[in-house]
Computed example of a mutant assay.
Amino acid sequence: MTARIDRLVTAGVFSLDGGSWDVENNVWIVGDDTEAIVIDAAHDASAIETALGGRTLRAIVCTHAHNDHIDAAPALADATSAPILLHPDDLPLWKQTHPDRAPDGELSDGRTLTVGGVELTVLHTPGHAPGAVCLYAPELATVFTGDTLFQGGPGATGRSFSHFPTIIDSIRDRLLSLPPETVVRTGHGDGTTIGEEAPRLAEWIQRGH
């Protein structure tokens, strides 16, 4: 069976630093006909469970712990018995949303997750959040970037726990070194490729200062 990538768009509210915004999130499901992982369980656990279509859920992977990316994670874990995985540097953000429910395991830089015969490598890419990670699947020519890299530039760094020079370093050192044909699957909105975004690095830096 061939591994595939399914995209589900869910809607909800992002809240941080006293503000709230209506958002739509990309939920990525990677796997084959029997097993899958979910990248960012956003807003609607039942919709995600339906999209799994009866497949065994091996893990719920959090690219970072802003509430709009993790709000449905505990309910989905309860429904499927899948572990929630998060980089430990994002535990302070996680606790803002789920103070009484800890993640089940840690995502560390270089860790590999295997599902449907495909390996995904964890890349620690802080900046948007301290524990932000991306997941690189070379066999699928894809990197899942959460809110680290979007079509047209880096994720936001204007709120607490974020830092613009750090996200630029993460993108330059960890993402733009990937093959240019690598498809970038983002936490919100449309995707892009590494090759499309790489030439814009100097422009991002100039805008950020």
Rank of each mutant, 00 (worst) to 15 (best):
R101D: 06
A45R: 05
A198Q: 05
R200E: 15
D44R: 11
W204P: 12
I205L: 06
T145G: 05
L135P: 01
T112Q: 12
W94D: 12
H98P: 07
L178Y: 06
A47Q: 02
E203L: 12
S20V: 15
L175C: 03
G187A: 08
G127F: 15
F164E: 13
G110A: 09
V61C: 02
T2V: 14
G195S: 04
R101L: 00
F144M: 10
L149A: 09
T148C: 00
A137K: 08
L52S: 05
A45N: 07
H64L: 06
I168E: 07
E203W: 00
D90R: 03
H64F: 07
H43V: 05
G110N: 01
T157Y: 01
A73S: 11
V23R: 10
T10A: 04
A45P: 06
H69V: 02
I84Q: 08
A137S: 04
G19L: 07
T97W: 07
P180M: 05
V27Q: 01
E35G: 13
A41Y: 10
T97P: 12
V183K: 15
G116M: 03
H87E: 00
G31P: 02
S46I: 15
D104Q: 12
T112K: 11
R7T: 06
T63H: 08
T10S: 02
A42P: 04
A42T: 13
I39L: 15
F161E: 02
P154D: 09
V27L: 03
T50V: 07
H163Q: 06
F164K: 07
D90W: 01
D32H: 11
F144P: 08
N67H: 13
S177R: 13
S177H: 08
E197M: 00
P74Y: 01
L52Y: 01
D190C: 00
P130E: 09
G152C: 13
T50F: 11
H87M: 02
D109P: 02
E119Q: 09
Q206F: 05
R55P: 00
T56L: 11
H124T: 07
H98Q: 04
V115T: 06
P99M: 12
S81N: 12
H43E: 02
L107H: 00
D68M: 14
A82T: 09
H69K: 08
V122F: 03
I37N: 04
D190V: 10
I29V: 13
H98I: 02
L57F: 01
Y136T: 00
E49Y: 10
V23Q: 15
N67T: 12
D71R: 09
R174A: 12
A47D: 10
R58Y: 13
T192N: 09
G187C: 02
P99A: 13
P126F: 15
Q96A: 13
H98M: 08
P130Y: 09
V38R: 14
S160N: 03
V38F: 10
P99E: 14
L175K: 15
G53Q: 11
H64M: 06
A82Q: 02
V13S: 10
Q206Y: 07
T10Q: 05
V115N: 09
H66Y: 04
A198V: 15
G110K: 07
G12H: 03
N26G: 09
V133I: 10
N25H: 03
G158R: 13
P138F: 12
A42D: 04
S81I: 10
V118C: 13
